[in-house]
Simulated assay, not measured.
Amino acid sequence: MAATDFKDYYQILGVNKSATQEDIKKAFRKLARKYHPDVNQGNKQAEARFKEVNEAYEVLSDPEKRQKYDQFGQYWKQVGQGFPNGAGGAGVDMNGFDFGQYSSFDDFINELLGRFAGGNRAGGQSYSYRTSTGGASGFGGFNDFGGFQDMGRNSAQDSEATITLSFAEAFNGVQKRFNLGNETIDVRIPAGAKPGSRLRVRGKGPVSPSSQRRGDLYLVVELGTHPFFKFDGDNLVCEVQITPDEAVLGATIEVPTPDGMVDVKIPAGVRSGQSLRLRGKGWRNRNGARTDQLVKIAIATPKNISEQEREYYEKIRDIRTFNPRSNLQQFRL
């Protein structure tokens, strides 16, 4: 375990280790007001400090969590000083609690506060505190911090975690299972989730130590990469290669969509880089309608051709009347 992982919550709140619960509460309220995002809009350092203060207070305001944290502090010091007989800290038991099971301080805090942990816990890649007095349900934006209120009386703490879905899961909808400390919940992700979509799970966030209210859990959707589809705003985009003769003469080709292959008519004389719009073949939105799919055309030049193909290309070259560089003569410095 890296000694630098440890956070001194007493120092963060500006109190000593013998501080009473009232001392801790007063220090928390003062710092929470100072660093609250409503009075520090756009200040990332203040936002990070605000989260640290919340985390410190949640631990130190709970006697049981505070006791375990103090024990961990002793364990961390031993790690920094080196254990006798080469023990290295593994399996160290302090008053019935094995701190050697944690690979980092964050692992310890995640379990202590019932947060998402990484590894094999589904969807738990990240976690952050947000203080909220409201917000929208379902997908879409939400008011992160609401109106500024007395932190000691009314606020509830929300949690936020990222969930990575495949394109198929996001398009069709999927049910995912999450471990929230000692609680397991099943969450249905509606069809049509996009990168950055937020799903609100009411009453599944952490309990605020100041108000004893349980906040909400917000799941922020990320999508894995897809070898063919990408997003362009609300629409899907893809790139399809065609041959030179198809570009000149036009053709009908098959193109993948989320629903399967469809026939697409390529107009004669299409340009490389030109996009064709497939209306209603893109992503699902919240009202059940479909956006569009944009098919970007790329003219693929063959590298290996037969002798007969070369012969015909040479004939076309000899009789060709079109010169795409005819306008270059007008340009001068």
Rank of each mutant, 00 (worst) to 15 (best):
T4V: 11
D5H: 00
K7V: 01
K7A: 00
Q11E: 14
I12M: 07
L13K: 07
S18A: 15
T20I: 05
I24L: 15
I24H: 07
K25D: 06
K30G: 06
A32K: 03
K34N: 11
P37F: 03
V39K: 12
V39D: 06
K44R: 11
Q45Y: 04
K51Q: 15
V53T: 05
E55Y: 09
Y57W: 05
E58R: 15
S61D: 06
P63V: 07
E64K: 14
R66Y: 10
K77E: 03
Q78W: 01
N85D: 11
N85L: 09
A90G: 11
G96S: 06
D98T: 10
D98R: 07
G100V: 01
G100Y: 00
Y102Q: 00
S103T: 06
F108T: 01
I109C: 06
R115W: 11
A117Q: 11
A117N: 13
R121I: 14
G124C: 02
Q125D: 13
S126K: 08
S128A: 15
R130P: 08
A136F: 07
F139S: 01
F142H: 11
G146C: 08
G146M: 04
G146H: 00
G147H: 07
G152S: 14
G152A: 12
Q157V: 15
T162S: 13
I163D: 04
S166H: 01
F171T: 03
N172Q: 08
F178P: 03
N179S: 15
L180P: 09
G181Q: 04
N182K: 13
D186F: 06
P190F: 00
P190H: 02
A191N: 03
K194F: 02
L199P: 06
V201A: 08
R202A: 13
P206I: 06
P206F: 10
S208H: 13
R214K: 15
D216A: 05
Y218C: 05
Y218F: 14
L219A: 03
E222G: 10
L223T: 03
G224L: 05
H226Q: 07
F228H: 09
F229M: 02
K230D: 12
D232W: 02
C238T: 15
E239C: 05
I242P: 04
P244F: 05
V248F: 08
A251L: 02
T252G: 08
I253S: 02
P256I: 01
G260E: 01
V264Y: 01
S272N: 08
S272W: 00
S272H: 06
L276R: 06
R279V: 04
G282A: 07
W283P: 02
R286V: 13
A289N: 13
R290L: 07
T291P: 02
L294P: 03
I299E: 00
A300W: 09
A300S: 10
K303S: 09
N304G: 00
I305E: 09
I305R: 12
S306V: 02
E311L: 13
Y313T: 09
P324S: 01
R325T: 07
R332A: 12
R332L: 11
L333P: 09
